[in-house]
Write a protein that binds this DNA or RNA. Structure first.
Lengths: 341, 341
DNA sequence: CTGAAAGCGCTAACAT
DNA sequence: ATGTTAGCGCTTTCAG
């Protein structure tokens, strides 16, 4: 209930001109006398006129809003992506509605529906760890809602997406561990149906195969993606008769959780066991954790660009953008041979 | 350009009733025949009708949106506050437009203006470290824009706010260091004109006074609030003839930056120097940093509640809510006497 | 260069 | 219980 604002009607009345004239003056039309324009502008200023965007949007059938749904925005990863998105779309006058699904499939669908109701012109989504919303997204696609997936995708759907080559970089991580001399490399995987889980798992398996290391099913566990799940993984791995000499975790939170839990148990990293993560985090950097850096800001920018393309072109083709990443080797995976005395 | 949607007009035409009837059916009015209602609902379903919120908002002079401006949302702190805000307002059908000023006063004012143009019904703001936007906020207040400050406030302004008692908790931190036996306690302060800087500084000074420790101006430096600024602080302090035996940093990022920089120089914490932070962070917890925990989610919830009060009541009085906090003592400030052998 | 008028989609008197 | 009508604030033909 902010104080009721002046409208173009008020300006028109005050000046004895028509609303059309006022509108033209305000919108920088050329079909107007400079003097009238000046008067209108002055009066607008005087009356503290502010355009009612909703009226304009109603007329133009736009909303100038896009929606973003991410699993969480507490850790750096998605916030950075969101900043990248805003960088692009704010310049074009779009606002961003941000929702977090809290890794819940049902909250995710609620978010999407809320955003639909808010009449966003498009959606950028990273699905929850257990997202079961294929039908929802299929409907959006059918209804031509512009849609882009980032990071986590639903591979069954033909949707534009911005990702890195998770398989390739998981391969590189595993290969790095192998080249460092580790042989009993465990993999703590994410939630089973998550795209990144499947891809990184495949990269891990491919690397083992490439170096003729037999896969040991016992060294693989699906723990999830949240730090608090790491303990379960360590509990399991450290109770094996033949313990791993290295752990490749699905992401940094799990890797960091492992490091903390291992230290708790008096184990030294990497002397007793090496640890590698994925999607490099600030905490990981501080803890000297080997990980794969993802270009988060750029992911956001690219996703926004892709979305805008769809918004501006009813039948833009779906596109997959695969960005480059980088394996950053740190102390947590020091090569065995460097420690031999 | 999503496929053009059905309107109530379409439903009305298809059914041979008036738009008013359709509107009534859709809005659960009681002045309607159950059978007609049913038919309308069925037809709406069939036509995949979705209400046009902008039209409704235009009519009702609402927007169902509130704006939030924070200095950043990369670290946990503001994201948690935002989640608290959303918890409250989403339930009432409000959407949240989130902007980050990136600690820049001018971007902050741009953000606020963008949000105004988006016709938000109210604003929750935490100002940038060098915010010079008093006039802007004063105008908003004059225009009766609902406004709440969180965490960082502009004390010259009579605005509702949600904070903790920074002075009191800074006192407690300093007192804790004193009781641990530290005497040469440095303070790395934030940006000079920030409310939290002034309050925490006063708490620090009060504690020294309370324990008859003379203030040593040399041990005080205004470094700022961002982690990368910590190095400058350490550079300065470690070049003093009489070095500090403890550091009280304005916040966790600075404290963490100090710890890293000190370790870099081969110094042990707390053996060589103790470090305490403020606004406990996940990284700080992992690094065993003593700090003051802030109830971030609750700050958000309270701020949202305060804002809603203003939105629903044109002249709600300004209110200051001071939430409780907690000093969490960890290894980084181990008492001197516990280490005596 | 300016004005009149229609209409975006919806709700809410006011009739009936 | 339903229909008619006006109008939210704005832009945009169409006339002049």
């Amino acid at each position: 209930m902010t104080s009721s604002n002046a409208t173009i009607k008020d300006i028109a009345k005050a000046l004895g001109v028509s609303v059309a004239t006022v509108s033209r003056a305000l919108n920088g039309s050329h079909e107007i006398h400079p003097l009238t324009k000046e008067k209108v502008l002055a009066k607008a200023e005087e009356l503290r006129y502010k355009p009612n965007i909703q009226a304009r949007n109603l007329l133009k059938k736009r909303s100038n809003m896009i929606g973003v749904v991410v699993p969480e925005f507490i850790t750096f990863f998605f916030p950075e992506i969101i900043i990248g998105i805003q960088e692009i779309v704010n310049k074009l006058g779009y606002q961003v509605l941000i929702c977090q699904s809290n890794e819940s499939s049902s909250l995710e669908s609620k978010n999407v529906k809320m955003l639909e109701e808010s009449m966003v012109e498009g959606l950028i989504v990273s699905v929850a760890k257990n997202s079961k919303n294929i039908d929802l997204y299929q409907r959006l696609i059918n209804e031509h809602m512009p849609l882009v997936f980032v990071n986590r995708v639903i591979s069954e759907l033909n949707v534009s997406q911005v990702v890195i080559d998770d398989r390739k970089w998981a391969f590189k991580v595993t290969e790095h561990l192998i080249k460092c001399g580790y042989r009993r490399i465990a993999h703590l995987a994410g939630n089973e149906y998550l795209s990144v889980t499947k891809e990184r798992m495949q990269g891990y398996l491919n690397a083992l195969a490439a170096y003729d290391i037999p896969v040991n099913e016992n060294l693989i566990m699906y723990v999830g993606v949240q730090q608090e799940r790491a303990k379960a993984g360590i509990d399991y791995l450290m109770n094996l008769k033949e313990k791993p000499d290295a752990i490749f975790a699905i992401n940094d939170p799990i890797a960091v959780g492992c490091m903390l839990e291992l230290k708790q148990r008096g184990m030294k990293i990497p002397e007793d066991i090496a640890v590698a993560g994925f999607s490099e985090s600030p905490i990981g950097r501080i803890m000297e954790l080997t990980s794969v850096f993802q270009p988060t800001f750029e992911i956001g920018r690219k996703a926004a660009t892709l979305l805008l393309k769809q918004i501006n072109n009813y039948d833009a083709p779906t596109e997959t953008i695969t960005l480059d990443a980088k394996l950053n080797v740190r102390h947590s995976t020091l090569p065995l041979f460097k420690r031999v005395r």
